[in-house]
């Protein structure tokens, strides 16, 4: 076997380690800040609004919003971690080293997306632990809970990776997360059941992909969902496949990397 043609696992590990080291270097921004934000959500939504909404689908309001809150952070942090990770070397010019290294496209994606997804999964678990301090939690389907967590983190890290390659400025880097992802997340049933919406809005909401992620994730906690868990899983996989296809096209054409 030609060793020079063998997969470059050391490169994957080198990139992954640098990405993880960055998270620990910026622990205040990476970990503490989202935890504080989540705690504030509990204070505002859980206590202030929760005192007026006692239960949704038989679940206390405080516990009901936990999966949505985790998804909110998971989506935004996955996108932000991955987009920044690939945009920063583009911005400072150090991407030359990555492009000139004997690394395949797949290895680059695995390393960057793996690093970003790992960070957001750790964050999701920290938020889960934080939430357990405020409300009693139950996880009916722990396997599926982890599956949705990992699948969503990987999918949105891929999405972030695409944004990072597409972006030509820090403004563009923030554009999609701020103008599209955050509104979709807030309107995706994080803080309410879509059954609570009036007819037409309920139908419109079904076009929001985040609804399926939150619904599936909430099902793994409480066994209750706004839409069928099979559809949730299917929609997540469709989005994952779309992201993989776009990344494959980017690397095949060298879009905004090798041109």
């Amino acid at each position: 076997m030609n060793l020079r043609a063998a997969p470059n696992f050391r490169a994957v590990w080198a990139i992954y380690r640098v990405e993880m080291a960055r998270a620990f270097r910026t622990v205040l921004q990476s970990i503490i800040s989202p935890v504080i934000s989540t705690s504030l959500y509990f204070v505002v939504f859980g206590s202030a609004i929760g005192s007026r909404i006692t239960e949704i689908d038989g679940i206390s309001y405080g516990a009901f919003i936990v999966p949505g809150l985790i998804m909110l952070s998971l989506l935004t942090q996955s996108i932000s971690n991955a987009s920044f990770a690939i945009y920063f070397p583009k911005f400072v010019g150090s991407i030359y080293e990555l492009l000139s290294a004997p690394v395949s496209y797949l290895e680059i994606v695995i390393a960057y997306v793996g690093g970003a997804a790992t960070k957001s999964i750790i964050l999701g678990l920290i938020i889960l632990a934080t939430a357990s301090l405020f409300v009693p939690l139950q996880i009916e389907h722990p396997f599926w809970m982890l599956a949705f967590l990992i699948l969503t983190a990987v999918t949105f890290s891929l999405f972030g990776f695409i944004i990072g390659i597409w972006a030509k400025s820090f403004e563009q880097l923030q554009l999609v997360p701020l103008l599209i992802v955050t509104p979709l997340t807030f309107l995706g049933g994080s803080f309410y059941s879509i059954h609570m919406l009036p007819g037409i809005w309920k139908t419109i909401t079904l076009f929001n992909p985040v609804v399926y992620l939150i619904s599936g994730f909430r099902w793994s906690f409480y066994g209750k969902a706004d839409v069928s868990v099979g559809i949730s899983l299917g929609m997540t996989l469709v989005f994952l496949a779309a992201c993989i296809a776009i990344v494959a096209w980017i690397f095949r054409t060298g879009y905004r990397l090798r041109n």
């Binding site: 920063f88 010019g93 150090s94 030359y96 004997p102």
Partner: peptide, 26 residues
């Protein structure tokens, strides 16, 4: 390759960034 521009991850240590390059090249 030593490019013309000084393009380094400014927040990495000298030791870490040189070892990173070695790892990147397998």
């Amino acid at each position: 390759l030593v490019p013309q521009e000084l393009t380094i991850d400014a927040f990495e240590s000298v030791w870490a960034t040189v070892n990173y390059s070695r790892g990147l090249f397998g």
